[in-house]
Design a binder for these strands. Structure first.
Lengths: 206, 206
DNA sequence: TCCTAAATTGACCACCCGGTCAATATTGAT
DNA sequence: ATCAATATTGACCGGGTGGTCAATTTAGGA
């Protein structure tokens, strides 16, 4: 039962990270279709034959990179969820947004791959992956909403699926915007935005 | 001062629509980079030389199609804005969502081009176009919010830019979801969702 | 030091791309 | 019917793609 990345995993750490690094750059800068194995190869300073020896196809390389990115996102989310378990909903929400902002700042290229995946049209298993992400988000935000509902902080008659959908929509869109302004060198007033987001969900526009 | 699409506009309506139709299909199914002029040509049943005679480059053809799609979206929005000018905010919001749903149902391929443009990474003048769309949306939703604030239906202390951003985020994401379930053959409970959206903005999760 | 097995290389393949342009077909005025 | 102007065609170009594989380099045990 040997994984298909076996050959890759047996390389030196240094070479592995050169390849991963080059792949992240390529997939974060271009759509899946436009990303070029030749470009990865030349950035990583290995030969084409080697790359295809480590990863049989572009698809397999992409999956490796995407799982890596997603793994990092999950770690972040898990951490903030656990660390804020006892905070009230509003503060918890605020911490989640904050940790998203932090992730984007620390891993802009991974964030780019994530947004490209979620919002863009191509990439081979996009539908499956997006479904997976969606259920992950539903699970994650759903738990946090449930906690708040159990504590009577939120209306218990809320439709959880829909509420989670709205939360997810606003959070994702904000983080996407933050990511884009960041890569333009601008800066949003983070605290102000975080505040507005929690206000929106706590009392609407009234 | 002759437009660059001059040659195209002088074609018979039948041929024009064959070409437009083929182009819409191609650009709605594939990213800009992946969309193929060869494919457009064979769908439209004209020769490659002709297509490049009517539109000098792929870029120019894309712009023609995108402007066409955007024009249709604008018509819809303008219409619903004018027809609902006297309704209270909640009902107006509901009508806007409805008209979005209607547009998607009647023009699924144009909707696809729109979403691809807004959410996807490539296409040549994406940044300029998205900026244009953003200011259009800000203008559009901003006006509608302003009307509501003038009538004291909404908190006048709201930050309009941020509120419009949230509105836009939720509406777009919902319509995107609707579009995707539609193309999967499923159906969302439209009335229920419209209702939840207006509730979210009128009183949050409380 | 030698030899073999494994790792690495890059020239090469078939295919597709956007775009060109000489050759051909069509049109319409005389 | 003729012929010049115009519209249309598709073979062709240079270049890039994902992927292959014979040839070469490297590594390490005897």
């Amino acid at each position: 039962m040997i994984s298909s990345t076996n050959k890759f995993e047996q390389l030196s750490d240094e070479k592995q990270s050169r390849i991963v690094n080059a792949s992240i750059s390529e997939f974060s800068e271009k759509d899946y279709e436009s990303a070029s194995m030749n470009s990865v190869v030349s950035q990583a300073k290995i030969s084409k034959g080697s790359l295809f020896n480590y990863f049989k196809t572009k698809n397999i390389l992409y999956n490796h990179i995407y799982k890596l990115a997603l793994g990092e996102v999950k770690d972040y989310l898990r951490k903030v969820r656990d660390e804020t378990a006892n905070l009230p909903f509003n503060e918890r929400l605020s911490e989640i947004v904050d940790s998203g902002v932090k992730f984007i700042t620390e891993h802009p290229r991974l964030a780019r791959i994530y947004f490209r995946l979620v919002y863009s049209g191509d990439s081979p298993n996009r539908k499956k992956i997006v479904k997976e992400l969606q259920s992950m988000s539903e699970d994650y935000l759903g738990n946090i909403m449930q906690d708040a509902m159990d504590r009577n902080e939120l209306d218990p008659k809320l439709d959880k699926t829909q509420s989670v959908f709205f939360l997810d929509a606003v959070l994702n869109r904000f983080l996407k915007e933050y990511h884009e302004t960041l890569s333009k060198g601008k800066q949003l007033d983070r605290d102000n935005w975080v505040n507005s987001i929690t206000e929106l969900f706590s009392k609407g526009f009234k």
